[in-house]
Amino acid sequence: MLELKNVSVEFISASSVRAVDGVSMVLRDGSRTAIVGETGSGKSILMLSIMRLLASNAAISGEILLDGEDILKADRKRLQQIRGGIISYVPQGGGASMNPLLKVGFQVGEPLMEHRGVSRREAEKKSIGLLKFFNLGDEERLAKSYPHTFSGGMRQRAMVAMGISAGARIILADEPTKGLDEKRVALVTDTFNRLKDETLLVVTHDMTFAQKVAQDICVMYASQQVEYGTASQIIGDPLHPYTRDMISAMPENGMKYDDRGFAPSHEEDVKGCRYSQRCHECMEKCSEMPPVADVNGHKVRCWKYAV
């Protein structure tokens, strides 16, 4: 089980920037959670902070508990065991996500060599099987090919294969559908749905994709978690005005969209609810920061539901 308790990330420089502000969530074994939100909401930073892969000027506070063990207190050696061995990070399948000078088969099998002591030849052989599992087609040739010969969708599926190659039981995927067309999004969705035993945490700004792969959804806005509940609660009965606006902007809901500007930047000092500037249900009370309310296990940060 992976549990995030009040996790915040601050980048220390001339002026400190808080990129993630007090996020809490529980990933039970085998659960599937999606973090949704617009660009700059802190989703990817939160994911990288779980892997402790942020730049050295990032200060992470709170607790990230892996079966009770705080990852934030793990030393370098323990971190190397966790990364790829227990928790896998699947980056966006863009052109720069794989080493351009190494064959895909080697890169997919690399965690196996590192964590399971498997020889290079054996790891490359197993990587063919993994690529087959995700149905890439002509896998033996693909394993011997270089990443630049792959399409975005193929690269993304190969990255997922890489993520599970050493038997990691928690998979963190960062925007796996970014820049892909509908057909390829369907292929990537199928790839994630083939993972049956692994715990999945996926960051996306694609609500439709989140709905298809996740049981739980966490909505983030301007570095804060504004709503957290099951997928049916979030999609079927959204509580936070931001979530409601986001759902009505989905293509299947007619892409209804009010142009009320963008989320405040990290540098902007917003008093009270961060969505208040764009919220059409804004009240006087919203000038103060709302607490997180629990509505039948459905968590929401909005004054409308605060007792």
Binding site: L48, M51, L53, L79, Q80, Q81, I82, R83, G84, G85, S88, Y89, P91, Q92, G94, A96, S97, M98, N99, P100, L101, L102, E110, P111, E114, H115, M159, M162, A166
Partner: peptide, 25 residues
């Protein structure tokens, strides 16, 4: 580069990241 973050995420040691992924490129 992003692929260096990917290399770290696999649990590789600094030495392996440097020699296998950074220096080669």
């Amino acid at each position: 580069e992003e692929y260096v973050t990917t290399a770290y995420s696999k649990g590789l040691t600094e030495k392996k990241v440097l020699f296998r992924h950074v220096m080669k490129n």
